[in-house]
């Protein structure tokens, strides 16, 4: 009897406290870290915007080690966080496992697909955005050769590469596209020195625009572009500001919007599980033009790329997708 009263009290008090307290959101960032100026930065920006606008209670951690991810998720869940967001493909297994153990906690994962009622998977159509920047790279190239530098060699990054190459070849079928990867472990996201060497090698082989998708290693490619007076294309966040005049454009993934919207819906009690796709159609991916690169993208280039964009959205251009290759 006493026990059941206590349990009831506990449930009531829990409910009261959860109404009185702001939504507790835990953000688990990937290895590149909050300041990679790219993928994780975008996620952090979205979350910190939500913290400001929606008055949620935000805690973030960085997974410096792949083995730590599961524990980070679990410790957030144990502390009764309402929503836990995992950033990056590497967190897929951890989210899957922890979400099953804590069915009352809401989870979201970016770049990974987890099917569970309390998990929302935020997936981006990277190949579509990459197709656009590939087209821009080919239009800008004078040497008839462009390059791609990926971070860790995983299907996700191959998806970027494939879309990029297809975009470049759509504009100029004879263009030469070289493709390199920094490494095969998570360390590849944090190795600007190696990324720079890869970029220097590609530039010396004739490429004059390089698209880089390597997290915190991106700066190495930007440095190389600056030294060799060539061009680079940023990724995930709008990176045009990092080196104005050197970065042709950025393939933006609206990770910030995806994270912000998820938090907002969770706060409003409208959180749903399942997969949400972000493509060109809903501006989940895009190329960027701002004051830092408006001189590099000529009106003619812009017109052409907008046309391509429309055709992709209308389904007139089929962008090859690495995920569906097999």
């Amino acid at each position: 009897m006493v026990k059941s009263i206590l349990t009831a009290l506990l449930i009531v008090s829990f409910h009261i406290s959860s109404y009185a307290n702001p939504l507790k959101v835990g953000l688990v960032l990937d290895k590149g870290g909050k300041d990679d100026k790219s993928f994780n930065s975008a996620a952090y920006q979205g979350a910190s915007k939500a913290e400001k606008d929606l008055k949620i209670d935000l805690k973030y951690v960085e997974a410096t080690d792949t083995n730590a991810i599961e524990n980070l998720h679990r410790s957030f869940a144990r502390k009764n966080f309402d929503l836990i967001i995992g950033i990056g493909f590497a967190q897929k297994d951890a989210v899957k496992k922890v979400a099953a153990q804590f069915p009352q906690v809401k989870f979201a994962i970016v770049d990974g697909e987890v099917t569970a009622p309390n998990v929302r998977s935020l997936l981006f159509e990277e190949h579509e955005g990459s197709f656009l920047v590939g087209a821009l790279a080919a239009m800008n190239s004078k040497s008839n050769s462009v390059g791609f530098v990926g971070g860790m060699d995983i299907p996700l990054i191959r998806r970027f590469a494939m879309g990029y190459a297809a975009g470049a070849k759509y504009v100029n079928p004879k263009i030469n596209v070289s493709e390199n990867y920094v490494g095969v472990t998570g360390e590849a996201w944090n190795n600007p020195a190696k990324a720079k060497e890869l970029a220097l090698a590609q530039y010396s082989k004739g490429a004059d625009v390089i698209f880089v998708a390597a997290g915190a290693s991106n700066t190495g490619v930007f440095d190389a572009a600056e030294e060799k007076k060539k061009f680079a294309i940023g990724v995930d966040s709008n990176q045009n500001w990092i080196k104005p005049g050197v970065i042709l454009t950025s393939m933006m993934k609206a990770v910030d919007v995806a994270v912000y919207d998820t938090i907002k819906e969770a706060q409003a009690g409208k959180f749903t599980g399942g997969i949400v796709h972000f493509g060109l159609k809903n501006e989940g991916v895009n190329y960027t033009v701002d004051k830092y690169n408006e001189k590099l993208i000529t009106p003619d280039m812009k017109k052409k790329v907008e046309e391509i964009k429309k055709k992709i959205i209308a389904g007139q251009i089929q962008v090859p997708d690495y995920y569906k290759k097999k």
Partner: peptide
């Protein structure tokens, strides 16, 4: 080789 410090570089 690079232009800044990044974690565990």
């Amino acid at each position: 080789l690079a232009s800044s410090y990044s974690p565990l570089m």
